[in-house]
Structure formats: structure tokens, C-alpha cells
């Protein structure tokens, strides 16, 4: 998912760097506040905060090594690999996890030139911020609590990892398009990026589930346990809507963009490839223009529309169920 300097414009660099710097500033303050609590005389075993420095180093090293296994995604200028944000946030908490993942991205940039200096802001936002600060609190945390079964922890890991990866991939396409360096059309670009990241997300979810299962078994004290209280029902449903929208939208969008839908297919068959006669009355044209003006996604890209569409549908269904229950 690392973006390259060559595809970034100075304006995108400035915007994403500003966001990344602000987030690193907040994360540093949050982590410093946790580490400052300890006193020198307290035995190290008793204070969890004292473990945060080596734990951040080790977990960072683990993700750093895991991200070394990467491959070039055809036609996107981006690499495919696991991100590991959910695992880091689950063990270290969202802010320390964000800071650790940022340090991994910085080290990769400095040592292996994987993702450039100009693209650093983009990479931090796409990978670290979206996974630790968005997917973790919105999807992972509401889905699990202390007494959840191993299966539920696994399902939450997979749902949150897929959400993080698809959101990150979506951000890559938006930033690359806004830079305007590549001539690749947006619809094609998104089609190359999203389905592959859905699969990587699935793999990452399984790996995250394996590590969390091992930690729950041998070192349950290492999980960021203070965070996993009983989740509220509403946040659980919200988490499920986000995950389902991203996963369903990506799958539906990928299928829709490769094959015409049933109606288009049948029209194609009956007209034997010929275009339908253009019976365009003024009313037809007027309706079409109005539709273009009021539609939220006029030049609609199937995958993006799929995600937004499924999300909106699930949200409407949930709101309706709330209304009905109150009556």
C-alpha cells in the first residue's frame, strides 16, 4: 500500500503531511502521558506502562518484518502487503499503535526507500491513521470484550482488518487521482486496488487472529485490556454496518464492473449488440439532466458506489428498525 514519491503532487504532499504531523503530535502526547505515570521505585512487573517502550519496539519489529513480504500490484504503482494496524492497536492501544506503525513506515522509507519522503504523510494517513484510529475504534473494539469467544475475536480481527485495508486502498486511489500524475482512469484504478486489498485484509485478519489467540492463551496481560469493556449494542451495529458495507461493496462492485447486470445483458442479447433507438423526448432529456444534477455519484464508479450504497442501505434499515421499535 506504500505510495511512491513519483506519483505525488506537492499539494497532496502538503495536505497529508499536515494531517500526519498533527496526528503524530497528539499520539506523542498521549503516549508520553501514559509513560510519565510510572515511578522509579515501582517494581517493573506491577506497572503495565513500563512495558510500553519494549512492547512498542517488539510489535513494531514484528510488523516491520511482516511488511517486508510484499509484491507489486499490477497497474497501481503501489505495493500489496499486510498493514498490521489492528494487531498493534489491540495490543498497544490506538495511539501507541498509531505511533508504532508510523515508526515502521518511517524506517521503511529511510532504510529501504519503500514509499518516499514526500509520500510519507500519505502513507501514514492511509495505513496507520485509518487502521489504528478509524477501523480499530469503530469496528474492532465494539465487536469484542473480555469474555468473547475465540471465534468472535477472530471474526472481529478479520472484519476490522478488511475494513482498514479497503479504506486505505480507497485513500490511495483518491490521493493518486488528486495528484494528477497518472493517466489511469479512476474507475480502473479503484478496480485494481480494492479487490486485492480485500483479499490481503482477509489474510491479515487471519494472521491477526492467530497472534491474538496466542497472546490470549499465553500472555493475556499483554492485550490492551482496559479498552475491552462490554460494548454498547449501538456501537456493535455501527461497526457491523461499516465492515459489511466495505466488504460487500467491494465484492459487488468488482463483479458489477466486470460483467453487465442482468437487464443490460438481456437487452444486449435481444438487440444483438445494436444500440436501442434513441427516442429522446424533451421530457427524457430533462429527467436525465435532473438525475445527473441531484445524483450523489453522477459518473458513478461501481465499487465506490457499491460501498456507499450498501452502507447507506444498512444504515436506513437500522434507522427504520429503531423507529419501529420506539412506536
Amino acid at each position: 500500500m506504500h505510495m511512491s514519491d513519483a506519483l505525488i503532487s506537492p499539494s497532496v504532499f502538503a495536505a497529508t503531511s499536515a494531517i500526519a504531523i498533527a496526528l503524530v503530535g497528539i499520539a506523542t502526547r498521549q503516549v508520553s502521558r501514559t509513560t510519565r505515570k510510572r515511578s522509579i521505585d515501582t517494581p517493573i512487573e506491577e506497572v503495565r506502562e513500563q512495558r510500553i517502550v519494549p512492547l512498542m519496539g517488539v510489535m513494531g519489529a514484528l510488523i516491520f518484518a511482516a511488511q517486508m513480504l510484499n509484491f507489486a500490484i499490477p497497474a497501481t504503482g503501489s505495493s500489496g502487503h499486510i498493514v498490521g494496524g489492528i494487531l498493534l492497536a489491540a495490543i498497544l492501544g490506538p495511539w501507541a499503535g498509531f505511533l508504532t506503525l508510523t515508526s515502521v513506515i518511517v524506517v521503511q522509507c529511510l532504510l529501504f526507500a519503500d514509499g518516499g519522503l514526500m509520500a510519507l504523510g500519505c502513507n501514514v494517513v492511509n495505513m496507520a491513521a485509518l487502521s489504528c484510529l478509524v477501523a480499530y475504534p469503530l469496528v474492532f473494539k465494539p465487536l469484542v470484550h473480555h469474555s468473547s469467544s475465540a471465534l468472535r475475536w477472530g471474526a472481529a480481527s478479520i472484519a476490522a482488518s478488511i475494513t482498514a485495508l479497503t479504506m486505505g486502498a480507497l485513500a490511495v486511489t483518491i490521493e493518486t487521482e488528486m495528484s494528477g500524475i497518472t493517466a489511469l482512469p479512476y474507475s480502473r484504478f479503484i478496480l485494481f486496488m480494492l479487490p486485492i486489498h480485500l483479499l490481503i485484509g482477509l489474510g491479515e485478519g487471519l494472521a491477526t487472529a492467530a497472534v491474538i489467540a496466542a497472546l490470549r492463551r499465553y500472555r493475556p496481560d499483554l492485550l490492551h485490556d482496559a479498552e475491552y469493556s462490554e460494548p454498547k449494542r449501538r456501537s456493535f451495529i455501527f461497526a457491523a454496518i461499516i465492515a459489511l458495507a466495505l466488504i460487500g461493496g467491494t465484492i459487488a462492485g468488482s463483479i458489477a464492473s466486470t460483467d453487465p447486470d442482468g437487464l443490460e445483458w438481456s437487452i444486449e442479447r435481444t438487440t444483438e449488440g445494436k444500440e436501442l433507438a434513441q427516442h429522446q423526448s424533451t421530457m427524457h432529456q430533462g429527467a436525465a439532466e435532473t438525475q445527473q444534477t441531484i445524483a450523489l455519484l453522477p459518473d458513478y464508479n461501481t465499487t465506490l458506489s457499491g460501498i456507499i450504497g450498501i452502507g447507506a442501505t444498512l444504515a436506513v434499515i437500522y434507522s427504520l428498525s429503531l423507529l419501529l421499535r420506539r412506536q
Binding site: V58, G60, A61, T102, S103, V107
Partner: peptide
């Protein structure tokens, strides 16, 4: 905090 993490990450990579 951040520069220490950069150094730690690097050193713990050899440990891993």
C-alpha cells in the same frame, strides 16, 4: 518518544 521508538524498532528487529 518518537525517536526512541525509531531506534528501538530497529534494534528489536534483529532480536525478532
Amino acid at each position: 518518544v518518537f525517536t526512541t521508538q525509531l531506534l528501538m524498532l530497529y534494534r528489536y528487529t534483529s532480536l525478532l
